[in-house]
Simulated assay, not measured.
Amino acid sequence: MDEATSQYGASDDVLLAAFANGDLTAARLLTDRLAPRILGHARRALGDPDEAEDVTQEVMMRLWRMAPDWTPGGAKVSTWTYRVAVNLCIDRLRARRRAGPPLDDIAEPADERPSVEAELHRKARAAALTDALAQLPERQAQAVRLRHLEGLGNPEIGEIMDIGVAAVESLIARGKRALAASLSELRPQLGLEDDGS
C-alpha cells in the first residue's frame, strides 16, 4: 500500500491519484470520505433512500472513470463530486415531474358505467315501458313519449299534435296514470321497490 494512502489524512487529490495508479485502498478511503456527504444531499433532495443510493454510486463511478485525467490543484475533488450529485438529483427530479406521480399514488378512476345489475334493470324497465306504452291509446302514448322520452315542452307537443296545451296536459296526465297502474305490479321485478321511481 502506498505510504500516502496509509494515512487517512491524505488529501483527496493524493487519494484520487493513488487510485488512478491502481491503489484500491485509496478508493476505499476516498469513498468513506465523500460518499456520506453525497448520500446525505441526495436523500434530502430526492426524499427517496434508494434513489439517493443510486445517485451516490453514480457519482463515485464517474469519479473513478475520470481519475486518470484528474488535474491536481484545479477543482477540489469534494466540490466536483458535490456538483455532479446536485446535477444528478436535478435530472431525477425533472424526470419525475415529466413522468407524473407514481402509479401507486394515482387513485383508480371511478367506473362510470352502471353495474351489470343496474344495466339489466335499466333494460327491463325500458322494455316494460315500451310494452306499457303500446297498451295506451295512441294519442296518450304519443304525448307521453314526446314529453318524457323526447323532453319536449307542452307547447311544442301541442304544435306537433295540432292540439292546445290544455289537451296535451290532459293526455299526458291520463297516460301517466295508466302507465303507473300497468307498471305497479312489475316494480319489484324492475328493481324499483326501494327507489321510489
Rank of each mutant, 00 (worst) to 15 (best):
M1W: 12
M1H: 13
M1C: 09
D2W: 14
E3M: 11
T5N: 03
Q7R: 15
Y8T: 11
G9P: 04
A10V: 01
V14K: 09
L16W: 04
L16G: 00
A18M: 00
F19N: 04
N21W: 13
G22S: 03
R28M: 06
L30I: 03
D32F: 13
A35H: 04
R37P: 00
I38S: 00
I38F: 02
H41E: 07
R43I: 04
L46P: 03
G47S: 04
D48Y: 07
P49D: 08
P49N: 12
P49W: 06
E51I: 06
E51Q: 14
E51T: 08
E53T: 09
E53I: 07
Q57A: 07
E58D: 14
V59Y: 01
M60I: 12
M60A: 05
M61F: 13
M61R: 11
R62K: 15
L63F: 06
G73N: 04
G73W: 01
G73M: 05
G74V: 10
G74R: 13
G74Y: 07
A75W: 05
V77H: 01
T81F: 00
V84S: 03
A85F: 04
V86E: 05
I90D: 10
D91E: 14
R92D: 01
R94D: 06
R96A: 06
R96F: 04
R98H: 15
A99L: 15
D104Y: 15
I106A: 06
D111E: 10
E112K: 11
E112C: 14
P114S: 08
L120F: 11
L120K: 14
H121K: 15
H121W: 13
H121I: 10
K123F: 13
R125W: 01
L129A: 10
L129G: 01
L133A: 01
L133C: 05
A134F: 10
Q135S: 14
Q135V: 11
L136V: 07
P137Q: 15
P137T: 11
R139F: 07
Q140C: 07
Q140W: 01
Q142I: 06
A143D: 05
V144Y: 00
R147A: 02
H148N: 10
H148A: 08
E150P: 03
E150W: 12
L152V: 02
P155W: 09
G158T: 05
I160K: 13
M161D: 01
V168G: 00
I172K: 09
A173L: 10
A173W: 11
G175E: 02
K176Y: 07
K176V: 13
A178Q: 12
A180N: 13
A181E: 12
A181D: 12
L186W: 08
L186R: 15
L186C: 06
L190I: 09
G191I: 03
L192D: 03
L192S: 08
L192K: 09
E193L: 14
D195C: 12
